[in-house]
Write a protein that binds this DNA or RNA. Structure first.
Length: 648
RNA sequence: GCCGCAGUAGCUCAGUGGUAGAGCGCACCCUUGGUAAGGGUGAGGUCGGGAGUUCAAUCCUCCCCUGCGGCACCA
């Protein structure tokens, strides 16, 4: 019998008969490891304890102490246990797929009746029975014909389709949890009792298309979360509660920032407080863009379809465009317009006015461009996905040789802006040429290399997504991470070889000939609406002082201090601060509570003592401590604090 | 757009086949209180829209709209 040589993490190498399983390897090391082992890493791949090893390899035995593999196995087994529980309760339900996802798993089922919340309780109970039974998990490799025959006989058409989709040379693996069988890549634990019975929870039922295809069957997806112990589950549920408290839709109402209503779904009604944030952010962006060599422009909202036909949007995206017609009775001209869904065609029109020289390049045209897109109903989500929004858009017209420098400057600007708005870290993804594309390979080579080099001038780590670029050019996506670890894709940088061609943008080169500029689409915030939503959630409503819609409330403690409160407010406003009086007939306790709930960063309390001293007592949001300072002192300190980061 | 759930006072929600309730908020009064809710009184609802069943619909049925959770989509 042939031997395989296994190398352990400590560097030791041992020889085993070919076909030995990791389970046997673990047991050969020590009986306690044999008992504790749950899976192995074989050359980095996650291996089931039951799979035979037939090649030399580096091996590491996993136990429940190895968190990543342990969680993967627990969640994967939970997916199977849940599917088994569902089929035990409702034998007619058809099973499809059930992968592990962040924090848990899901499994998609085909069942005529919807699952109810009560059903979830019943499934959980059944799952605990299965766990308590400590049913053995075993696996076999089947040939294709047998697997297909099995599932056809059992009336599981989805599984048959999955088998058809698996490449012919790949072995099909079956797993049993007790008597319940599922086609599965593995690995799994050794028996159902290894799954903690008190550290999982079924969260929700939702529709999901079979194979993610909206033309196909809608299935019912049950989501679950699972952890190693009860404490971790509790922490996760706590995290969900925290996220819920940060929900910008809720804070938007509580802080009176904005609202939505039926008459304009997906369009924001900004209230004074919300619009203050918006303006502060826009002013800041404008200064940053000015300083970075952009020229701001403003282009029309409503544009004849001819331009959209020329740009190609009419063909491809008309379904998502708001079309406007002029009432024929009252208009001499009949034309069809569209609300602009994006700014680029208009920006090319600005570029195209007059003759541009290579000396004009790079030309950076920026617009806080208000766009409308008819987004599907189900896509709308507070400020995060709206139908009317404003991009911090800009298009850089340049030569191929200028792409790299422009890209590097852009990444630099973006880092600064993310840092200033409170996002210290972000990820970059480079998407490269897709199968179907415009432009020569030579141009693509050059552009991809330019983007890559631009990234490398700032940092070493980035992700590449091959083939995911737009048909018109490669792109970078920028994802920032918020205070509770969620990622948001905001910034983008896209090279475009197509639109200048379609809309006939040219410049005169040093050679006196006409040339095509490259167009760089780029945004940092993405849309103001969405970015403000992200800001609200990141800060849980407690925005930094310069962005806080309400910065200071000056509250009287006794009504005799009311005139002084007005005087203080006047002084603060004169210093450019957002201050408001609170002279209501309420106790200071009440006022402090209300403004704290309202996330006002600074409360200045005034009683008779302050009146006499010409001082105020400062109470900062989140602090119990107060301090009394002279009005001048406070005004200077707060004015400094209110200075936007670019003006410091 | 698809699946499921929901829509009752400004907000959060209870409730019933015989046209409605609470808490908070709001208004007014008392109270002038020193850092997270002082007390009293009062106003406020076409029960999302439309159609149907019924003697009678906020409640049952159907359609639509909007929202929520996912899925699909996101130039």
């Amino acid at each position: 019998m042939s031997q395989v040589s296994l190398t352990f993490p400590d560097g030791a190498t041992r020889s085993y008969p070919s076909g030995t399983t990791p389970g046997e390897v673990a047991a050969s090391i020590s009986s306690s490891l044999g008992k504790k082992a749950i899976s192995a890493q074989l050359n980095g791949a996650h291996w089931d304890l039951a799979w035979p090893i037939r090649t030399d390899a580096e091996i590491a035995i996993n136990t429940m102490k190895d968190e990543a593999p342990a969680l993967e196995l627990i969640r994967h087994d939970l997916a199977h246990i849940m599917a088994r529980a569902v089929q035990e309760i409702w034998p007619d339900v058809k099973v499809t797929i059930g992968p592990v996802i962040k924090d848990g798993w899901y499994y998609d089922f085909d069942r005529a009746e919807p699952f109810t919340p009560e059903d979830l309780g019943a499934i959980e109970a059944k799952m605990r029975e299965i766990i308590a039974a400590r049913d053995p998990v075993r696996t076999e490799v089947w040939d294709r014909a047998r697997a297909v025959a099995h599932y056809e006989a059992n009336g599981e058409p989805y599984k048959v389709e999955l088998i058809d989709a698996i490449p012919g040379d790949e072995p099909l693996r079956m797993y049993w949890h007790g008597d319940w069988q599922d086609l599965c890549r593995g690995p799994h634990l050794q028996h159902t009792g290894q799954v903690p019975a008190d550290a999982f929870k079924l969260m929700k039922v939702a529709g999901a298309y079979w194979r993610g295809d909206s033309d196909r069957q809608m299935l019912q997806r049950i989501y679950g979360v699972g952890f190693q112990n009860r404490q971790q589950l509790k922490e996760y549920l706590h995290f969900l509660e925290e996220a819920e408290k940060r929900d910008h839709r809720r804070l938007g109402r509580e802080m009176e920032l904005f609202h939505f209503q039926e008459e304009a779904p997906g369009m924001v009604f900004w209230h004074p407080n919300g619009w203050t944030i918006y303006r502060e952010l826009e002013d800041y962006m404008r200064r940053r863009l000015d300083a970075a060599g952009y020229r701001e422009i403003k282009t029309p909202q409503v544009v004849d379809r001819k331009l959209w036909e020329a740009s190609g949007h009419w063909d491809k995206y008309r379904e998502n465009m708001y079309i406007t017609e002029i009432d024929e009775e009252h208009a001499n001209e009949k034309r069809t317009n569209a609300l602009k869904p994006m700014n680029c065609p208009c920006h090319v029109q600005v570029f195209n006015q007059g003759i541009k020289s290579y000396r004009d390049l790079p030309m950076r045209l920026a617009e806080f461009g208000s766009c409308h897109r008819y987004e599907a109903h189900g896509a709308l989500h507070g400020l995060m996905r709206v139908r009317g929004f404003t991009q911090d858009d800009a298009h850089i017209f340049c030569t191929e040789d200028q792409i790299e420098a422009e890209c590097a400057a852009f990444i630099d600007l973006l880092s600064t802006i993310y840092r200033d708005t409170g996002f210290g870290s972000f990820d970059i993804k480079l998407s490269t040429r897709p199968e179907v594309r415009v432009g020569s390979d030579e141009v693509w080579d050059k552009a991809e290399a330019a983007l890559e080099k631009a990234i490398l001038s700032v940092r070493n780590d980035y992700e590449v997504d091959p083939g995911e670029g737009a048909f018109y050019g490669p792109k970078l996506d920028f994802k920032l991470t918020d205070a509770i670890g969620r990622e948001w894709q905001c910034g983008t940088f896209q090279a475009d070889f197509n639109l200048p061609e379609r809309l006939d943008a040219t410049y005169v080169g040093a050679d006196g000939e006409k040339h095509r500029p490259v167009m760089l689409h780029r945004a940092i915030l993405g849309s103001f609406e969405r970015f403000i939503g992200i800001l609200i959630e990141n800060y849980a409503g407690k925005l930094p002082f310069w962005l806080a819609p309400r910065q200071i409330v000056v509250a009287s403690i006794v009504s005799d201090a009311d005139p002084y409160v007005h005087e203080v407010v006047g002084r603060l406003r004169a210093a450019g601060l957002r201050a408001e009086p609170d002279i209501r007939n309420e106790k200071i306790n009440f006022k402090v509570r209300e403004h704290s709930v309202g996330k006002v960063p600074v409360i200045l309390a005034c009683g008779m003592r302050e009146v006499e001293e010409q001082s105020v007592t400062v109470r900062r949001l989140g602090e119990k401590r107060t301090s009394t300072m002279s009005l001048d002192e406070v005004t200077d300190a707060l004015r400094a604090e209110a200075t936007p980061p670019d003006l410091l």
